[in-house]
Design a protein around this nucleic acid. Structure first.
Length: 481
RNA sequence: GGCCUCAUAGUAUAAUGGUUAGUACAACGGGUUUUCAUCCCGUCAAUGUGGGUUCAAUUCCCGCUGAGGUCACCA
């Protein structure tokens, strides 16, 4: 069987965002599933739109998601170079073959003339086809500074798209497309055909916007006598509102921006892979290995899918818990470096680990840590109103509250073994002794030691804080009231 | 305007020529000795429309509507 080769071929015009990263994920999965190769190729043939540093961003994104490429920049490979700008002589060589066989010609039409033709087509309400304006006498010579066009062979064409199914098109959509631009660089339309052929690419996956150009590509494959690879059109990811595809204009964040926001790569990969794809089961959470073994092209949805950040964050929470529960607290802790409040820096890892273990199931993103754990590292500011306005405490009189704090301090002071179990026993005794409801007594203590809108189970919070700090905070509050 | 694609709840999706049209997120309600979350239980909610084919259509076919793509010396 032929070795499966897929590729991700972005142009370095900026960062990779949610809307376009799927065309990296799916080829990667297909390659790995078939023990094939995944190539990264940089399509930098548009010198106007080239953005310095974009290649680094692309590489960083792929690495973060765990989509290692087998050939491409950095790692090299037998089919390089992997920057199209370094392959110009190859394209020229290929286009010359076409010229020799009379299938490509130099186009002398100035841009203004082309615009004129286009306008004419608009007024005549028809699609623009260059071949309708093609010079009568063709110039079969390759020269610097003159664009080269394909001499099309319009006819009915049929092909199969792995997602869209059986496709067909008439001659009216096939044109004399530009192969080499005036500046000597190839167009995408031409370069990708040459490169894919040379690199042995077996599966071409790209956004649906290329669907209507496919007949032209088919003509090119035919002219070169190439086998047509498996063609895969990926429907667009839609912006949260409207029906347009998600793009930078909709504020689509770069994929790696989510890393800074505390989203795990596992969750991101999981979410994106499952946006518009589903293996037919009711499974929601997939590891990368599971995705590799379960992925299939025919299960890709043929309609667009809307990006839903809420679900991504839900999935991230699932992954945070999953990592903690299956790989252990240390594994999750290692991922949280850089997400703790600044004051946590001076604390030992052991203490952070303890805090993490009682708070992790409340995290949606790792960056929640910053807000949610501050009181474990520094005394909170006392806010008496927070106690007075609490929905369980506002019916109690000030004297009553004062008395309860006194009793709580007394009780907790008497505990010898400051551990979660003993604390729970003591708290239960305190409930009985005071005759108060848990909602009242526990809220009171909870607020006094954290002054946070919420916190983990009371006995665990107390245990983690330690006897001295817990009592000191309670005393401070009792005094302030 | 030509050509092309798409169409199940708010969102992502499952399913089969015959089901009470399933699941997840969201929303809403409830439970787990406080809170927030987790976890659990429940409620709400969908086959765009009109024709056909068929005993039977969400599923197959056609029209319509709606949405999107494309018609670059951008990719």
């Amino acid at each position: 069987m032929m070795k499966v080769v897929t590729r991700f071929a972005p142009s370095p015009t900026g960062y990779i965002h949610i809307g376009n990263v799927r065309s990296a994920i799916y080829p990667y999965l297909i390659a790995k599933q078939n023990s094939g190769k995944f190539i990264l190729r940089i399509e930098d043939t548009d010198r106007e739109r080239y953005v310095e540093g974009a290649t680094d961003l692309i590489e960083d994104t792929l690495k973060w998601l765990g989509l290692e490429w087998d050939e491409g920049p950095i790692v090299g490979g037998e089919n390089g170079p992997y920057f199209q700008s370094e392959r110009l002589s190859i394209y020229h060589e290929w286009v010359k073959k076409l010229i020799e066989s009379g299938r490509a010609y130099a186009d002398p039409t100035p841009p203004e003339k082309l615009d004129e033709y286009r306008k004419q087509c608009v007024t005549e309400k028809r699609a623009f086809l260059y071949r309708d304006f093609r010079p009568e006498k063709l110039d079969f010579e390759f020269r610097e500074g003159v664009p080269i066009r394909f001499l099309s062979d319009p006819k009915p064409r049929e092909w199969n798209d792995a997602v869209m199914g059986k496709m067909s098109a008439g001659p009216e959509v096939q044109d004399d497309i530009v192969l080499i631009k005036k500046d000597g660089y190839p167009t995408y339309n031409f370069a990708h055909i040459v490169d894919d052929a040379l690199m042995g690419v077996t599966h071409v996956m790209r956004g649906v916007e290329y669907l209507s150009s496919t007949p032209n590509y088919l003509a090119l494959y035919e002219a070169f006598g190439l086998d047509v690879p498996v063609l895969v059109s990926l429907p667009h990811i839609l912006a949260p509102t409207g029906n347009k595809k998600l793009g930078k204009r909709d504020g689509a964040k770069s994929v790696t921006e989510y890393r800074e926001d505390g989203v795990l790569a596992e969750a991101m990969l999981n979410y994106l892979a499952c946006l518009g794809w589903n293996d037919g089961t009711e499974q929601e959470i997939y590891t990368k290995d599971e995705l590799i073994s379960r992925f299939s092209l025919d299960k890709i949805q043929s309609s667009g899918a809307r990006y839903d950040e809420v679900k991504l964050l839900w999935m991230n929470g699932q992954w945070i818990r999953r990592i903690f529960n299956t790989q252990g607290d240390k594994a999750l802790y290692d991922r949280t470096i850089g997400f703790w409040p600044e004051v946590a820096e001076s604390y030992p890892e052991e203490y952070c680990l303890k805090v993490l273990s009682i708070i992790y199931d409340r995290l949606k993103t790792l960056s929640d840590l910053r807000e949610m754990t501050e009181y474990f590292f520094k005394d909170p500011e006392i806010d008496v109103d927070m106690i007075k306005n609490n929905k369980f405490l506002k019916k109690l009189s000030e004297a009553e509250i004062e008395d309860l704090y006194k009793k709580a301090i007394e009780k907790l002071s008497s505990i010898d073994n400051w551990d979660a179990d003993s604390l729970q026993v003591a708290l239960n005794e305190l409930l009985e002794e005071t005759g108060k409801k848990p909602a009242e007594l526990f809220s009171m203590i909870r607020i006094a030691i954290s002054f946070a809108p919420f916190s983990p189970a009371l006995n665990l919070t107390l245990e983690t804080l330690g006897k001295d700090i817990a009592l000191a905070r309670l005393n401070a509050v009792a005094r302030a009231i």
